[in-house]
Design a protein around this nucleic acid. Structure first.
Length: 305
RNA sequence: GGGCAGAUAGCUCAGUUGGUAGAGCAAAGGACUGAAAAUCCUUGUGUCGGCGGUUCAAUCCCGUCUCUGCCCA
């Protein structure tokens, strides 16, 4: 029974898509996208989805599965991706998981503790409290209910504070305890790779790609999503490339400024991705200097199986 | 060729009536367990253009050179 899984991580614009396709083609297998934005339909240019041609070469999973106003989560991703992995294994294939969403990659590799769903009603209640009384207020709520978790967080980081409150609200057990007790037993063998670039080269590529996205009609793509009736504040549009263009459409600044911001925010995003992936001791970093290296890396990955 | 104004952090600049300097932006490092392209935290040593001089002490004053901009020939 097959139990191997190839995982390809790395920052945005690092060549994950191309590499994954080359590997999958050679192994005659399929790709699972670990990308919290490519999940959404209509966000195509700005999320640098694989092209139609590329999608034709190799079957892809978890791309274009949601409307922009639908919710998703790391835990759903874990379930969905593990389900697909199981099916592929059943067919004797080695799945290729590729993507840049650190938490999703984490969900596949190690899992997210189970059993505590989101509670939209409670979240909107907390959001209201926060709007009215500020970060400190909800943080104090956490200090009272789950001081141990509160100690590890700052009041400003309200998203984490809210999640901790939510978990306690639903289970009466602090989040750190759930985390501590959670053990996932899965018989999978991961081959975990990260793509590494010289920082300034990657940044230059990012800028070129942003210009290309604009040329390809990023702005029209956003307008078309909005014209379908999706609100500018949906989670899907809180995405680099789109969130900077919305104020431009509202005449808050120039298009040139928006493009600058997209480039800067993409750079910062790439940096955060490096920070996230550096935490894994078992990641094998593959140095990339130009797009030709991808084929070489593909060969190396396959030879190590 | 002459005159004037500049030259300080990666960039744009501020500043020190002489005691070796600080903002914004950019950038770097970090956190992250069901919103994660999200949400947050931390970080400013730089021959103050070069070389001389004055001074206990020069980024600051003086001289000179180089470069940049403007003006006059």
């Amino acid at each position: 029974m097959e139990r191997r899984v190839i995982v390809i991580a790395g920052p945005t614009c690092s060549g994950k898509t191309t590499l994954a396709i080359e590997v999958a083609k050679e192994l005659n297998t399929e790709i699972i996208s670990a990308d919290s934005r490519q999940i959404y339909k209509y966000l195509t240019i700005g999320t640098a989805k694989p092209t139609k041609d590329e999608l034709k070469k190799v079957p892809h999973h978890l791309i274009d599965i949601l409307n922009p106003d639908e919710d998703y989560s790391a835990s759903k991703f874990e379930n969905d991706s593990l389900g697909i992995i199981e099916k592929l294994h059943h067919n004797g294939k080695i799945p290729v998981v590729a993507g840049g969403t650190g938490l999703y990659i984490h969900a596949v590799l190690q899992g997210i503790f189970e059993g505590v769903d989101t509670d939209p009603e409670y979240r909107s209640y907390l959001n209201k409290l926060r709007d009215q009384y500020g970060d400190e207020y909800i943080y104090e709520m956490l200090v009272k209910t789950d001081p141990q978790s509160a100690e590890k967080m700052l009041p400003q980081n309200w998203k984490r504070v809210m999640r901790a409150l939510e978990v306690y609200h639903l289970t009466k057990v602090p989040i750190w305890k759930h985390q501590e007790e959670y053990v996932r037993e899965l018989d999978l063998e991961f081959y975990f790779y990260g793509l590494e670039w010289e920082r300034d080269v990657l940044y230059k590529n990012i800028e070129t790609r942003v210009d290309l996205m604009v040329e390809q009609g990023l702005l029209n793509e956003l307008k078309s999503v909005l014209s379908k009736g999706y609100q500018p504040n949906v989670n899907a549009l809180n995405t680099v490339g789109y969130k900077e263009l919305i104020p431009y459409l509202n005449n808050e600044y120039s298009l040139q400024r928006a493009i600058e911001l997209i480039k800067r925010n993409t750079r910062r995003f790439a940096k955060r991705q490096f920070t996230w992936f550096r935490r894994y001791a078992d990641i094998q970093w593959m140095k990339v200097g130009c797009s030709d290296d991808i084929t070489r890396i593909k060969d190396e990955i396959i030879s190590k199986l």
